[in-house]
Design a protein around this nucleic acid. Sequence first.
DNA 1: AAACAATACGGAGCACTGTTCCGCTTTGCA
DNA 2: TGCAAAGCGGAACAGTGCTCCGTATTGTTT
Lengths: 186, 186
Amino acid sequence: MNDQGRRKDARRNEQTLLEAASAVFVTSGVEAPVRDIAARAGVGMGTLYRHFPTRADLVIAVYRHQVDACAEAGPALLAAGPTPYAALTRWVESFVDFLVTKHGLAGVMQADSAGFEALHAYFLDRLLPVCARLLDAAAASGEIRAEIDAYQLMRGIGNLCVGAENDPRYDARRLVALLLAGLERE
Amino acid sequence: MNDQGRRKDARRNEQTLLEAASAVFVTSGVEAPVRDIAARAGVGMGTLYRHFPTRADLVIAVYRHQVDACAEAGPALLAAGPTPYAALTRWVESFVDFLVTKHGLAGVMQADSAGFEALHAYFLDRLLPVCARLLDAAAASGEIRAEIDAYQLMRGIGNLCVGAENDPRYDARRLVALLLAGLERE
DNA sequence: AAACAATACGGAGCACTGTTCCGCTTTGCA
DNA sequence: TGCAAAGCGGAACAGTGCTCCGTATTGTTT
């Protein structure tokens, strides 16, 4: 727990930055200017960038716990749910909830969002295997057509969540549900 | 054909700008720097902005014909297709083709894409009524569940097309097809 | 043909990004 | 207590979209 012998001001600043970033993300969204976060943490730009070499790294650090929790929920749901498709549905719903409640996260998670490749890669690394396992199980049980791979499903879900938070006429959950319904074997 | 008595250099520059923008959009995408377009047209920034007060206006001007064609295809398909749902499917496919072939257009068509509200509004004005008509007809014929309104469907389709052009692993057409399949009444 | 508004042009400049760089400060070990 | 090493702050850079205004072009009026 020595935190690798870094100086204690460094450790304190990293923590302060994470808290500031988390707060700013809630109020101004994930795309908030880096300066705002540094200012809120009472820290210079250099400090921010030494701890988090790019905006994406900061975003990853802030949401790492929730992404991990989402990844761990997959196998649990599969074990608990009545059927694999039910587990898939619930897992997807929780993922969508996560994306939709974080301002702009879905938009920035896209592969082509310049400078956020690391974020995209992290989400994929962590969640793709989980999604694949659920999808395979649901296909094996005959509940869905195996028409799509986990990558495309994840990307489709992410895309459907883009911009969902500032548009009362748009309900990403419903559209994702429709997409899953399209997978069902009739 | 007098083009409202504007000076002839003005008319010529507007045309040159449209051609330059069109060419740049193809090679560098819709989000290409405005300076690039002005440079390609051999024109100053002031000229560009006088003719197209915002980037969105330029994008609209470049794609206006194709959007209009898409809008007009709706009623035609409804009249021609075997069923309203088939017409809807075909119309959506043509819309997806349009979005996917224009670099970054889908991403920029989103409501929250800062500075592109005008573009979003234009697409909606032009295409929403067409989509609504197709959707209503398909619902009336009993082929689909009326679970979703035209706005949400359009937005969902637009979202699914985001970033589709630079990712060989992602096939927006297939996901949109799945979404439509989710609408079918079983 | 010459003078002269009116119209339109060009590009420097502004405000705002993310990111880098480096002189100065703080820390913790000897 | 001294002093390198580690860390810090924020000015400065490069790249955006967009504005502003002095200058050039146009076409109309004498």
